[in-house]
């Protein structure tokens, strides 16, 4: 997401814009930000009504986005596997990607870290990294696709989330796994249960056969090759199995919640 911040609008102070777009802006202003833009004068002329400067455009767009969530859930085939690639196809160097600089990435001590589990699960015992490392793992070389459009091929190894959900006695008829992460400003994101149970959705502990480095989400990243990059949480602290839609860091700012590939 770092690049997202850098390339929003050329010629505008990027750092300031980022702050404006994400945190500092009050809701109303942020809304104007989404629907505003000088080119919209032309649209007003075309349609004869002031669709874009009003809140109704914002509401309409949000409703369509929700409708698109439903359409994507319908399109989603739980048996369709993301294409896999040979080792030679791996993108080197694999880009660091965040809404902060790499130096500001969470620096987690694996010895103290525990994965908290809550919500609709039978066993809420927290998991240490050593315990998690003992679970069966699988490796995948898949394409990471960012909402910005760029993509990179990487290699991740870890435990299928479906295996872990069974191990903790999760109610897999619930709607979401909701992840809270250690990123600054409290990144979180909901993952629909069908995607969580997809055979390629893994709790990744390794990148390129090495323990997941800090830049890529140490100690644990949820790798979901059927989702855009921002739906692949890094630096995971906790997981809640829930029927409630709790929103997410990017989702709340207007990014489509399903965002499936």
């Amino acid at each position: 997401m770092g690049r997202l911040r850098k390339l929003l609008i050329p010629g505008v102070d990027k750092k300031l814009l980022v702050k404006d777009a994400t945190r500092a802006m009050p809701d109303l202003v942020r809304r104007r930000f989404i629907t505003g833009g000088a080119s919209l004068g032309a649209l007003t002329l075309l349609t004869g009504c002031d669709v874009v400067s009003s809140d109704s455009a914002e509401e309409m767009l949000k409703r369509v986005s929700k409708f698109n969530d439903a359409v994507q859930a319908l399109i989603f085939n739980p048996y369709a596997l993301a294409p896999t690639f040979p080792e030679s196809a791996i993108t080197k160097p694999f880009p660091f990607n965040g809404y902060y600089e790499v130096d500001d990435a969470p620096d987690i001590d694996g010895k103290d870290w525990k994965l908290e589990v809550s919500g609709l699960v039978e066993n809420k015992k927290p998991w240490t990294l050593d315990e998690l490392y003992k679970l069966p793992q699988q490796k995948q070389i898949t394409r990471h696709i960012c909402v910005e459009g760029w993509s990179a091929i990487g290699s991740w190894t870890g435990t299928p989330l479906s295996y872990f959900l069974k191990a903790i006695g999760a109610d897999t008829s619930a709607k979401y796994c909701w992840f809270q992460c250690a990123d600054r400003d409290g990144y979180n994101s909901p993952l629909d249960m069908e995607s969580a149970l997809h055979p390629q959705t893994i709790m990744a502990f390794k990148f390129a056969d090495e323990i997941l480095p800090r830049a890529y989400g140490y100690p644990m990243k949820i790798r979901v090759p059927t989702k855009l990059g921002f739906k692949n949480p890094k630096y995971v602290l906790s997981m809640e199995v829930t029927n409630d839609y709790k929103g997410g860091y990017w989702e709340d700012q207007g990014y489509n919640s399903f965002s499936g590939n």
């Binding site: 690049r3 997202l4 390339l7 929003l8 609008i9 050329p10 010629g11 505008v12 814009l17 777009a21 104007r32 930000f33 989404i34 629907t35 505003g36 833009g37 000088a38 080119s39 919209l40 649209l43 767009l61 949000k62 369509v64 986005s65 698109n68 960012c146 909402v147 910005e148 459009g149 760029w150 990017w250 700012q253 207007g254 990014y255 489509n256």
Partner: peptide, 29 residues
């Protein structure tokens, strides 16, 4: 503009719709 295919080619905000990437995506979809 969020990830230009050509380094030297980006588009002025006067001809883009949505204000930022999320807004552009909402309009597009």
């Amino acid at each position: 503009n969020a990830s230009p295919l050509f380094r030297s080619l980006t588009f002025s905000s006067s001809i883009t719709l949505g204000g930022w990437l999320a807004g552009g995506l909402l309009w597009h979809f």
